[in-house]
Structure formats: C-alpha cells, structure tokens
Design a protein around this nucleic acid. Structure first.
Lengths: 184, 184
DNA sequence: ATTATTTTACCGAACGTTCGGTAATTTTAA
DNA sequence: TTAAAATTACCGAACGTTCGGTAAAATAAT
C-alpha cells in the first residue's frame, strides 16, 4: 500500500512545476510537495525528473479531456450550459487567475526541448474542444478554430497580466469575454 | 576599452534570460552568450546573476520607453502612423513571434520574487503607452486602458500560442487585430 | 494456517556533476 | 608604469541521481 496516493503525488508535482518551471523545480522541493522523500520519488518515477514532468503533462491532458473536451462536446447540454461548466472548471484550475498555466511554465527552452510534443498536443486538445463548441453555436470550421485560438490567447495573456499585476481582474474579464463570444 | 561593449553584453544576457528564464539561465551560458568568460562577467556585474537580470530589465524598460512609449505619444505623428511604428518595433523585438517576452520568462516564482516590481513597472509602462494612443483616437481614459490591456493580453497570449505551435501566425494575427482596434 | 520467499515502498547517505561565486594572475591599454 | 579588463584556476554548496538497506505487504510453499 502506498503511503501517498498517485493523485496526491501528481498534484504536488503539478503545483511545483507550474510555479517554478522545469529548471526551477528542484528534487528537494518536488519531494517536499509530494510528502515523499527524494529517493522514494525515484522509486515511483525511475526515470527521474523527466518522468515526473511527463506524468504531470499526461495528468494535465486527461484533465483537459475530462473537464474541457468532454464538457464542451456534451450534446446532452445546450452550448451555453456547456461553456459555463467548462469555464467554471478552467476558473477553478487557475484559482481565479492566481495560478499560472502548466504549459506556459514548461514552455521555456528546456521544457520545450524535452516536452514540446506533449505541450503542443495538450494545447491542440484545448483548441479542438473550443472549436467543437464554436461549431455547435453555428460557426463554420474555420471561424470556430479562429474563435478557439482567440479564447486560448485571452486565457493565457490574461494569466500573464494577472500574475504580473497580482490581480485576478484581467483573468476574470477574459473569462467573461469568452462567454460573450459564444453567446447565441 | 572593454573587449565587449555594454550593449553586446546586454543583448547576450537578454537572449539567454528570455529563452531560459531566471533559474534556467546558467552563468556558463550567460558568459558564452556575451563572449566573456564567467569571471569576466562578474567583473562587469559584481552583483552576479541578480545584477545581470536587473540590468536586462532596465534595458528592456528603456527599450519600451524609446520604441513604444515615445512613439505612441509622439504628437508630431498621426495616431495610425504612431501605432504602425510601435507595432513594427514590437514585431521586430519578438522576431515576428518566434521569440518570447522577457517578462513572461522572468515571471516564474523565482523571478517574480526577485524582480516583481521591475516587471510590474515595465508592463505598466507598456499599458500606459497604449493608453495614450487610445485617448489620442478619442477614447475616454477607462476605455483606453481597457484597450491597452486587451492589446497586451493578445501580444502575450499569441506569443504563448506561437511558441507552442512553432508558428508565427498567431502573433501576426494578433498584431493585425491590435491595428484594427485603433482604426479611426 | 503457518512459514518461507519475494516484492513493494520507503528512507538516509552518498555519488558525480554543475551551480553561482571568488582569488590570483596575465593581458591590454592609457 | 600603472590601472583596468579579462582569464585561469578554483571553491563550497546545491543539483539530479544512485545505492545499500529496512520494514511491511503480498505471494508461494508447506
């Protein structure tokens, strides 16, 4: 029986990689954040820091799949309701704009060289999700993708601004703006 | 006479800090990028890595002042022309969207803790510049600031997307969108 | 059911490497 | 010839990683 569950570990790792990036995340810090000792982390992740990062990226991808993709393509719900739920999830994962995006933190040179493909895949999943929503509100494929990209840009950009200004306002505005964009 | 000029050094440091962030930028790499040996860098920057970073941030701030602020508030030019020039400068400094923003790279936890104030100041200068332009095209102060923030968000967000997709298209679109926003 | 064996989970201590930083020395230039 | 600039050589500390070993749980054999 594991002393610390997989999910607890992943959440701990996620938190450190998000706030420190790949280079800035030290094994001591990662260990402390998970509640395991450094050597025990290596037992769980024999591939070391790289494997930990890959696991966190996979975790993030499954989060997008569950909390964004599935929600935005749920045909049992009306588009407006889908969007509300997805944005609630997004708002929660970014802690109202106080927390930074994992993909941003890992897209420095070192992280990109090691995990560029996973990062691109996750972002494409994100864009694809919003693209489906766009088409559900009657847009053609090209316009829907354009809207998805614009929404992604506003989330990312507003997170940068919110972080720098130490205020959740830019992010909250961005969320509202995305909501308006898909109004039918 | 210095073997390597201040500007050459600053450009070298800037390049590394931008692509690697504070934690990821090693002294060896910084030295190599400047053309000096590690110890010689310490001769120029006795305060070490922190002083180098501060110098780069000051350099960036003076760049914004020259290439954005002064341009956007130059009353000898019509607003549309001011914007074109400023966006040309911005386009150049980001290498059409291939290079990342220094403020983004340094706004991980470590960088924020050390240089949060300088980062915030630089961004505020940026916002102030575009705010002046907004007022020049007839917007009230509040709307002008809102437009400035939106433009900043689109630059930052599109840079994130361009980096991840390895394409300059998102950034170029964003530049165009900003241009449209200030059309009179 | 109980013992013996293997596997799993974890930890403390240490590994070699690289880090940021310093001292002493040589080179350059005035 | 003297001061500034750059270099070589080096330092202690922190890095990511590995190792030897312990305690507990799961599995196999009796």
């Amino acid at each position: 029986m594991a002393k610390v569950s997989d999910i607890e570990i992943l959440n701990g790792l996620m938190s450190v990689f998000r706030s420190k990036g790949y280079d800035g995340a030290s094994l001591n810090e990662l260990a402390e954040a998970t509640g395991l000792k450094k050597a025990s982390l290596y037992h769980r992740f024999p591939g070391g820091k790289k494997e930990m990062t890959a696991a966190v990226l996979d975790f993030m991808e499954s989060w997008i799949n569950d909390k964004v993709y599935k929600v935005l393509s749920d045909e049992k719900l009306v588009p407006t309701q889908r969007l509300k739920e997805a944005l609630d999830n997004i708002n929660a994962v970014y802690n109202e704009g106080r927390e930074v995006c994992l993909y941003r933190s890992l897209s420095m040179d070192t992280g990109m060289a090691l995990f560029g493909e996973k990062i691109e895949k996750g972002i494409n999943q994100w864009l694809e999700s919003f693209s489906i929503l766009g088409k559900a509100v009657g847009q053609d494929a090209e316009t829907a993708m354009q809207m998805a990209k614009q929404s992604f840009i506003e989330v990312q950009g507003s997170l940068v601004l919110s972080k720098a200004m130490d205020s959740t306002e830019p992010f909250q505005n961005a969320i509202q703006q995305i909501k308006n964009r898909y109004k039918t």
